[in-house]
Amino acid sequence: MDVFMKGLSKAKEGVVAAAEKTKQGVAEAAGKTKEGVLYVGSKTKEGVVHGVATVAEKTKEQVTNVGGAVVTGVTAVAQKTVEGAGSIAAATGFVKKDQLGKNEEGAPQEGILEDMPVDPDNEAYEMPSEEGYQDYEPEA
């Protein structure tokens, strides 16, 4: 019985440690998101679009440190934060509304985080759909 109880105690310690790591990862992701939003706020009209992409990228980098179902929630929060940063930029006159959601080359930025393969159960990952990809044929 002692062996059984000791095993359960060790398992509990492992769960607590994993929860603490997840909590730490979420806190880091939130900190990076805040950094990115402050970065966007300090940019001029020309830099705002690039700044919004930076927020998304920093958040995406930190999301990889967070495991399990938390990833889905962090990704949703990050996307809403990026959308909010863009709205703030438009409201303050840093950028025109028609410039939001495009990178410096004018290509749409939507789907940055949505296409990231995420499995809350950590069982399997699927690649994003290939609808947006084109076949590449090298020139002879």
Rank of each mutant, 00 (worst) to 15 (best):
M1H: 00
M1L: 00
D2N: 14
D2P: 13
D2Q: 12
V3F: 03
V3D: 03
V3K: 13
V3E: 01
F4W: 07
F4V: 02
M5G: 01
K6F: 11
G7N: 11
G7S: 10
L8R: 00
L8T: 00
L8M: 06
S9Q: 12
S9F: 14
K10V: 14
K10E: 01
K10T: 06
A11R: 01
A11P: 00
K12E: 01
K12Q: 06
E13M: 12
E13C: 03
G14C: 11
G14H: 13
G14S: 14
G14L: 10
V15R: 00
V15E: 00
V16N: 07
V16P: 00
V16R: 06
V16S: 06
A17C: 09
A17Y: 04
A17E: 04
A17T: 13
A19L: 11
A19K: 04
E20A: 06
E20K: 05
K21V: 05
K21D: 01
K21A: 06
K21Q: 12
T22W: 10
Q24S: 09
Q24E: 07
G25K: 12
G25F: 15
G25Q: 15
V26P: 00
V26W: 15
A27N: 11
A27I: 14
E28S: 14
E28Q: 13
E28V: 10
E28I: 09
A29W: 13
A29L: 08
A29E: 00
A30R: 03
A30G: 03
A30E: 00
G31M: 12
K32I: 09
K32Q: 03
T33H: 01
T33S: 04
K34L: 04
E35A: 14
E35I: 12
E35W: 14
G36W: 06
G36T: 13
G36E: 03
V37G: 02
L38N: 04
L38K: 11
L38D: 01
L38P: 00
L38V: 05
Y39K: 03
Y39I: 10
V40E: 00
V40F: 03
V40K: 01
G41S: 08
S42K: 11
S42G: 11
S42A: 13
K43V: 09
K43G: 01
T44C: 12
T44Q: 00
T44D: 00
T44E: 00
K45C: 14
K45G: 05
K45Y: 02
K45M: 07
E46W: 10
E46H: 14
E46V: 11
G47K: 11
G47L: 15
V48E: 00
V49L: 09
V49M: 07
H50G: 02
G51T: 08
G51K: 10
G51Q: 06
G51M: 12
G51F: 07
G51R: 12
G51I: 03
G51Y: 10
V52W: 12
A53V: 06
A53H: 10
V55Y: 09
V55L: 10
V55D: 00
V55P: 00
V55T: 04
V55S: 02
A56I: 12
A56N: 03
A56L: 07
E57Q: 08
E57M: 04
E57K: 08
E57P: 02
E57T: 09
E57V: 14
K58I: 08
K58V: 08
E61G: 10
E61L: 11
E61N: 03
Q62P: 02
Q62A: 08
Q62H: 06
Q62M: 04
Q62E: 03
Q62R: 04
V63F: 04
T64G: 06
T64M: 03
N65S: 09
N65H: 04
V66C: 07
V66M: 05
V66T: 03
V66S: 01
G67D: 00
G67W: 15
G67P: 02
G67H: 03
G67Q: 07
G67E: 03
G68L: 08
G68E: 09
G68Y: 13
G68S: 04
A69E: 03
V70C: 03
V70Y: 08
V70I: 10
V71E: 02
V71W: 08
V71N: 02
G73M: 13
G73D: 02
V74Y: 11
V74N: 00
V74C: 09
V74Q: 00
T75R: 03
T75E: 02
A76T: 12
A76L: 12
A76W: 12
A78E: 01
A78Q: 04
A78I: 15
Q79C: 07
Q79T: 11
K80I: 07
K80H: 07
V82P: 01
V82R: 14
V82I: 05
E83A: 12
E83M: 05
E83H: 14
E83W: 15
G84T: 12
G84L: 13
G84P: 02
A85F: 06
A85G: 05
G86Y: 09
G86P: 05
G86S: 15
G86W: 05
G86N: 15
S87V: 12
S87R: 11
S87A: 14
I88Y: 10
A89C: 12
A89S: 07
A89M: 04
A89I: 08
A90E: 01
A90I: 01
A90L: 10
A91L: 05
A91S: 05
T92R: 10
T92S: 08
T92Q: 01
T92V: 13
G93N: 08
G93R: 03
G93D: 05
G93W: 13
G93M: 02
G93H: 08
G93E: 02
G93F: 03
V95G: 13
V95I: 10
K96Y: 11
K96I: 02
K97I: 13
K97P: 09
K97T: 03
D98K: 11
D98R: 15
Q99D: 05
Q99K: 07
L100H: 07
L100V: 15
L100M: 15
L100E: 06
L100W: 02
K102Q: 00
N103E: 09
N103I: 09
N103G: 06
N103C: 10
E104C: 05
E104F: 15
E104Q: 13
E104W: 11
E105V: 15
A107R: 04
A107L: 11
A107N: 07
P108R: 12
P108C: 11
P108L: 08
P108A: 05
P108I: 06
Q109C: 06
Q109K: 10
E110P: 13
E110N: 08
E110R: 12
I112A: 04
I112G: 13
I112K: 03
L113S: 06
L113P: 07
L113I: 06
L113T: 09
L113C: 06
L113G: 08
E114C: 12
E114P: 07
D115S: 07
M116V: 01
M116Y: 02
P117G: 10
P117A: 04
V118L: 12
V118E: 12
D119K: 02
D119W: 14
P120G: 08
P120V: 04
D121M: 08
N122W: 10
N122E: 04
N122H: 06
N122P: 03
E123V: 08
E123A: 04
E123I: 13
E123T: 08
A124L: 05
A124I: 02
A124F: 15
Y125S: 05
Y125F: 13
E126I: 03
E126C: 11
E126S: 05
M127S: 09
P128C: 08
S129K: 05
S129E: 11
S129C: 07
S129W: 08
E130N: 14
E131N: 07
E131G: 11
E131L: 05
E131C: 10
E131R: 08
E131V: 11
G132H: 09
G132D: 11
Y133R: 01
Y133S: 02
Y133H: 10
Q134W: 07
Q134R: 09
Q134F: 08
Q134N: 07
D135C: 10
D135K: 12
D135L: 10
D135N: 12
Y136R: 04
Y136E: 02
Y136I: 12
E137P: 08
E137F: 12
E137I: 03
P138C: 09
P138E: 04
E139L: 09
E139I: 12
A140E: 06
A140C: 13
A140N: 07
A140F: 13
